[in-house]
Amino acid sequence: MRRNKLSYVVKATIRDMIVALLIMVLLIFTIDLFLGQEINSVFGILNTVAIKTENKEVVQNIQTTLNKEEKKIINYPEYGTQYATIEISKINVNLPVYYGDTLEILKKGVGHSSGSYFPGEGGSIIFMGHNSKNVFRRFSELKIGDEIKVTTTYGEYKYKIYDMQIVEEDESYKLPIKNDKEVLMVYTCYPFNNIGYTKQRFVVYSEIME
């Protein structure tokens, strides 16, 4: 008798739970039918502000390498990421180099102009940094013959300074992008202790050491 009662209660409870589940399914189906598009639009808007990290991680795992025979980079670093360090021991500079030249990058260290070649590719490379105390304030102390070392994730490159010039900001032809010789051009704002916006650049020209 007791067993019958228990079995009835269990069966009735399961039945009622299934009814609850069916009503819920019907409700969700109805909402999807009438408001499905609007809900997808809301998810779309939310996803524009919710960055998915999976893609970022995949990209960061790909190593930048150099094909030495063809002098070509395989897997260029992602824009905005650090791929090298620059050392100028004469003026105690040891800074990270980021691919790109945005304000955000220049706040963190040295930028690499995205229109120029990479170390090891045999072409013109352009780096830039602010003339602040922690970056290139001491550029005025550099002399012809001083060395610059760039250590990348795929190798180490040494350059020797052969020229230094003050150029106007619109004289971009004085920083030519060529592929016949590996030249590293590093520039900063000039005068070094100017207040306000500077219209000149102090450029250091260096060539690769064999």
Binding site: L106, K107, H130, S132, C189, N193, N194, I195, G196, Y197
Partner: peptide, 15 residues
């Protein structure tokens, strides 16, 4: 402060 630093670096003034 980080946003202010954007302007400092270009101004020639110390941080």
């Amino acid at each position: 402060i980080e946003n202010f630093e954007k302007y400092i670096l270009q101004s020639g003034l110390e941080e």
